[in-house]
Computed example of a mutant assay.
Amino acid sequence: MTDCKERSDRTIDGQPSYGKKVQHRKLSKKQVFKRSIFVFIGVVLEAVALETFLVPNGIIDGGIVGISIMLSHLTHIQIGIFLFLLNMPFCILGYKQMGKTFTVTSILAITALSIFTALLVPVPKFTGDYLLAAVFGGVLLGIGVGLVVRNGGSSDGTEILAVLTNKTSPFSVGETVMFVNIFILASAGFVFGWNNAMYSLIAYFIAFKMIDITVEGLESSRSVWIISNYPEEIGSALNDRLGRGITYLNGAGYYSGDDKQVIFIVITRLEEAKLKNIVEDIDSKAFLAFGDIHDVKGGRFKKQKIH
C-alpha cells in the first residue's frame, strides 16, 4: 500500500532528502540529438506555414510571430529579421527564470526559424484561398511550435515575457498571453483589413489546438480516485477486468475521522464507462472523481493481460 504521508520521507541514495539539493540529470548525446532533430523539424514546419500559407495571404498568428508579420508587411523587410530581433531579448532576459537548456534551445530554434523563413521567400504560396491558408497554415504552425515546445524550447518570446512578469502581475501566464494575443490579432484588422483579421483568428485557434495535441499527445488518459467501504473488492475487480495497476492511498474522513483507503487508477477514456459499471456493481454509493492527464510514463500503466 502507498501512504500519502510517505511522500515527505523520500530518500536519495539511502539518505534523507531534507534540505538536500537534487542534481539535475544531464541529457545523453542520443537524447540531445533526438531533441535537436525534432526541434529542426518543428522549425521547418513553422517556416513553411509562415512563408507559403500565412504571410503571402496577410494572415497572422499571435505573439511575436504576429507582430513580425505585420512589421514585415509595413516595412517590406523580411519577417525572419523581425523574428530574430524581437525574440532574442526575451530569451536572454529569461535565462535565469527558464534555465540554460531552455534558453540555448530557444535561441537555436529562433535563429533557425529566421534563416528558414528567409530561404523560403522565393517559394510561391500554396493557395490564395484565405480559408485554406488559415486552416493549413494554422495546422503546420501549431505542429511546428508544439514540437519545439515538447523538446524543451520556444520559438516565440510572448510566453517567456508572461512568465517573467507573472510574479509582479495580477494575471496568470495564460491570461497574459491571451491579452497580448487579442491585442495583436485585433491590430491585424488595421494592417490587413478585418476579413484577414477574422481569418487570422481562425489560424490562431487551429494553431493553439494543434500545439496542445502535439505537446500532450492524442491519447489522453483519465486518472480516477475512488472512495468506498469495499476498496479491496473494487481494486481486485478493476485489476482483473481492466488489467490496470491499482494504488491504495491512506486517508481519513474529515467529519467522521474514520480511516479510508482511496483507490487510485489511471485508465484510457474508452475504459471509463466500464470502470463505472464495475464500481457500481460492487458499491453503488462509492465516490468517484475523474481528472484528465497526459503523457503517462513509468509505473505499471501499460495494460496487463486480463484474466
Rank of each mutant, 00 (worst) to 15 (best):
residue 236 S to R: 12
residue 166 N to T: 13
residue 121 V to S: 04
residue 189 G to C: 07
residue 179 F to A: 08
residue 205 F to Q: 05
residue 125 K to L: 07
residue 136 F to N: 13
residue 188 A to Y: 09
residue 126 F to V: 11
residue 234 I to N: 03
residue 179 F to K: 04
residue 141 L to M: 12
residue 214 T to G: 05
residue 229 N to E: 10
residue 158 T to N: 14
residue 236 S to I: 12
residue 192 F to E: 03
residue 130 Y to K: 13
residue 130 Y to D: 15
residue 127 T to H: 07
residue 198 M to E: 11
residue 184 I to L: 06
residue 196 N to F: 06
residue 165 T to G: 07
residue 140 L to W: 03
residue 188 A to M: 10
residue 236 S to G: 09
residue 207 A to L: 06
residue 113 L to W: 03
residue 110 I to F: 02
residue 237 A to H: 01
residue 189 G to E: 10
residue 189 G to Y: 08
residue 199 Y to G: 01
residue 246 I to P: 11
residue 192 F to L: 03
residue 194 W to F: 14
residue 141 L to G: 04
residue 170 P to F: 04
residue 237 A to W: 02
residue 134 A to M: 06
residue 116 F to V: 11
residue 113 L to F: 02
residue 122 P to G: 00
residue 244 R to Q: 01
residue 149 V to L: 15
residue 162 A to R: 09
residue 145 V to W: 05
residue 233 E to N: 03
residue 224 V to N: 03
residue 174 G to T: 14
residue 155 S to L: 00
residue 165 T to H: 12
residue 149 V to G: 13
residue 194 W to I: 10
residue 222 R to C: 08
residue 174 G to P: 15
residue 242 L to G: 05
residue 147 L to Q: 07
residue 246 I to D: 11
residue 209 K to M: 07
residue 244 R to M: 02
residue 198 M to H: 09
residue 204 Y to S: 09
residue 247 T to M: 04
residue 148 V to H: 10
residue 177 V to G: 12
residue 208 F to T: 03
residue 129 D to K: 06
residue 162 A to H: 04
residue 223 S to I: 09
residue 115 I to V: 12
residue 220 S to I: 15
residue 241 R to A: 01
residue 157 G to D: 11
residue 244 R to I: 02
residue 158 T to M: 13
residue 197 A to N: 07
residue 175 E to F: 04
residue 134 A to H: 11
residue 113 L to A: 02
residue 144 G to Q: 03
residue 144 G to A: 01
residue 181 N to G: 13
residue 181 N to P: 13
residue 236 S to E: 13
residue 123 V to H: 00
residue 230 Y to Q: 12
